[in-house]
Simulated scan of single mutants.
Amino acid sequence: MSQVKGLCVMDVDGTLILEEVIDLLGREAGREAEISQITSRAMRGELDFESSLRKRVSLLEGLPISVFDKVFNTIHLTPNAQKFISILQKNDILVGLVSGGFSPIVARLAKSLDIAYFSANQLEVKEGFLTGKLVGAIISPEVKQATLEKWRKEFKLPKERTVAIGDGANDLLMLKSAGLGIAFCAKEVLKKEIPNHVDKRDFLEVFPLIDFLE
């Protein structure tokens, strides 16, 4: 890439992809109903993100790590996500992923889309099985915001050349700190606070909102 002219940071679950990976993992663990109910409430902003994540991850204890191959093969990119990302990259706009989901999935997604910058939660694994615990820093709403700022400063970009796209309550701080925050097929809690909405699940709808694309 030549000189970076802008930055677009995207949420993953429910934004870049159609599914919530933790709910798919819950299905494999036989706890889908319980987990998806907690996910819905967390994304609407009704529950603290970190404690609700720890609770959901605890229900995955005992799953083999081979589950990630199975889950990765069942997720779907949002319509035109790949095209959107490649057009940004051709215009020297760096694309980064910041996810409250999990690194085994997000790392593969990033690689498949030629994205070098990504951040996601790490699940603890012992002897090939999930322990039901997380390791390292949790990708909380505050960490999502801080990651966008870190990447922006790394490339010496002004705020107005940053875009953040997300759908859940945990994306609010990140969207607010970008030059352009976009609530993408978002929960009401986000739409109330973020003026720019895309309500059709198609990434081509995002282009008209980005004013620094040549």
Results as ranks from 00 to 15, higher is better:
38 I>V: 15
26 G>S: 06
69 D>T: 01
104 P>Y: 12
24 L>D: 05
110 A>Y: 11
34 E>N: 04
31 R>A: 13
120 A>W: 11
24 L>V: 08
104 P>I: 10
29 A>N: 02
10 M>H: 03
131 T>W: 09
126 K>V: 15
32 E>A: 04
123 L>F: 07
84 F>T: 05
84 F>C: 01
135 V>S: 09
62 G>L: 04
24 L>R: 11
14 G>H: 15
141 P>K: 06
147 T>C: 00
113 L>K: 12
58 S>G: 09
62 G>Y: 13
121 N>R: 07
67 V>E: 05
119 S>T: 09
47 L>G: 01
131 T>K: 08
138 I>P: 08
72 F>A: 00
29 A>K: 10
24 L>H: 09
94 L>Y: 10
46 E>W: 11
13 D>I: 15
90 K>V: 01
16 L>D: 00
65 I>G: 00
19 E>M: 09
30 G>M: 06
99 S>I: 14
136 G>T: 06
26 G>V: 08
72 F>S: 00
143 V>L: 13
85 I>H: 05
27 R>P: 00
129 F>I: 05
101 G>M: 15
47 L>K: 00
93 I>K: 11
73 N>K: 12
90 K>A: 10
89 Q>C: 03
8 C>I: 02
52 S>F: 14
28 E>I: 01
133 K>W: 08
26 G>F: 11
140 S>H: 10
69 D>S: 13
114 D>Q: 14
68 F>V: 10
90 K>S: 10
33 A>D: 10
125 V>L: 15
69 D>V: 04
123 L>S: 09
10 M>V: 12
67 V>K: 05
90 K>L: 06
18 L>H: 07
39 T>R: 12
68 F>E: 02
46 E>I: 01
132 G>A: 05
68 F>K: 03
120 A>C: 07
117 Y>E: 15
93 I>P: 05
15 T>Y: 12
85 I>M: 12
89 Q>V: 04
39 T>I: 01
119 S>Q: 09
66 S>V: 02
7 L>E: 04
62 G>A: 08
42 A>E: 02
18 L>G: 10
113 L>Y: 15
61 E>F: 05
45 G>V: 00
91 N>F: 03
114 D>K: 14
128 G>T: 14
82 Q>G: 03
73 N>I: 00
115 I>S: 06
74 T>A: 02
41 R>M: 08
26 G>E: 09
7 L>G: 09
98 V>Q: 08
21 V>D: 00
38 I>K: 07
50 E>L: 13
106 V>R: 13
78 T>L: 11
140 S>R: 12
65 I>Q: 15
43 M>R: 13
136 G>H: 03
66 S>K: 08
102 F>T: 04
146 A>L: 12
34 E>G: 01
